[in-house]
Write a protein that binds this DNA or RNA. Structure first.
Length: 92
DNA sequence: TATCTGACGATAG
DNA sequence: CCTATCGCCAGAT
């Protein structure tokens, strides 16, 4: 089994509970590759079927080019978005 | 094996 | 607040 970064990221991102949000850095760290936030982003766009909208950047920035789509999806999950940004990691 | 890419992260201006 | 640059890493070609 080619258990690679991709596989790990897929499972982790897919494990993010609805209404919550995580960051690329967090996902990368959980995957076992801290610092590989960039690689995470690539996988998010490479592997379909992933709740990529639950993953944001550490700065609270949403996915570039899909900010509108991203915001709508988060709001649909119950995540409050403020001015194109996510209200913290979905936790108070 | 080498080079390029990118939905990041942090710092500097 | 925004833009630019450097550093980081795995994947794709």
């Amino acid at each position: 089994m080619t258990r690679t970064f991709e596989d790990a990221v897929v499972e982790i991102v897919d494990s993010i509970p609805s209404g919550e949000t995580s960051t690329y850095g967090e996902v990368a760290e959980e995957a076992g590759f801290p610092g590989a936030a960039r690689a995470v982003g690539n996988i998010m766009r490479t592997v379909p079927g992933l709740p990529w909208w639950r993953v944001i950047t550490t700065t609270g920035r949403l996915v570039p080019g899909l900010e509108t789509e991203h915001t709508q999806r988060l709001r649909s999950e119950g995540v409050l978005v403020k001015n194109g940004r996510v209200s913290m990691g979905g936790n108070t």
